[in-house]
Simulated scan of single mutants.
Amino acid sequence: MGRSKEQIGRHCPFCGAIVVEGEYFCRSCHKRFTDQSELDAPSTTQPDTYVVSVRRTYVSVLLSFAGVGLGQFYNGDTLKGLAFFLAFIAVSFNVVTTQYQTLLFYGIWLMALGEALWSARRINRYERPFGGGSSYLLYGMLAVYGLVVALHFLTGEPTLAYLGRVFPAVKLGMG
């Protein structure tokens, strides 16, 4: 059987651990690479082995698609998530009114989607520190969103028009 590329001799120049092709940092010593050519440097030290927690970009985007701010909470950005959520709710429930209400409604949603994707990629490339877990508000918000959806399916209340104010994808689907 052939050997995979990660076993052919691509080693971290700092600790000597095996590095998978396409990685932007060493999963053993957590140091970032600036030049791909330095990955073949030999080392005589034994690397430490432990797993670095990374963010799945598709989960981050799916959460932001479902509810504004959830992707930020997943990435550990509690303040950004709250800012996106509160701005979205203020526009959605007409606390902030403007002639560009619909544009602002979808603009905040798309900005939250893009920021969640960008932030997850930066965490995975080790360009940004990650505290090691999602914000606790993620679980609270998921519970609240789950209750709202369960109430709708069980009782018919809140109406789809109301759900469209909370879930942008529902409003987009309603036309």
Rank of each mutant, 00 (worst) to 15 (best):
F65L: 06
I123W: 12
L82H: 09
V59F: 14
L154G: 04
E115I: 12
F14R: 07
S119G: 08
D77C: 14
G69T: 00
L113P: 00
V95K: 06
M111F: 12
P42W: 00
A17Q: 03
V148G: 05
Q36E: 09
R10D: 12
Q101D: 12
E21V: 03
G175H: 00
H11L: 09
L160T: 01
L63S: 00
Y74W: 11
L117I: 07
W118V: 15
G173I: 05
A90L: 04
V20H: 01
I108M: 09
R10M: 14
F33W: 07
R56A: 13
T159I: 12
M111I: 01
A83N: 08
V61P: 05
T49P: 10
T44D: 14
F14Y: 09
G67K: 01
L79D: 11
D35T: 10
M1V: 06
C15E: 07
C26H: 02
F73Y: 09
I18A: 15
A143G: 04
F73L: 15
V20S: 15
N75E: 11
T44R: 10
V149S: 02
A66N: 13
T155P: 02
A161D: 08
V51R: 13
T78P: 07
P47E: 08
Y126C: 12
R122M: 11
E157I: 08
F65M: 10
G175V: 05
R32W: 05
E157W: 15
S53G: 13
F65Y: 13
G22T: 01
G9H: 01
R122F: 11
Y74Q: 08
N75R: 01
V95D: 08
L163N: 04
T98K: 04
S60I: 03
L86R: 02
N75L: 04
V59C: 08
A161N: 13
W118S: 15
G173V: 04
V68N: 04
Q36V: 15
F65P: 10
V170M: 07
K171R: 09
V52S: 14
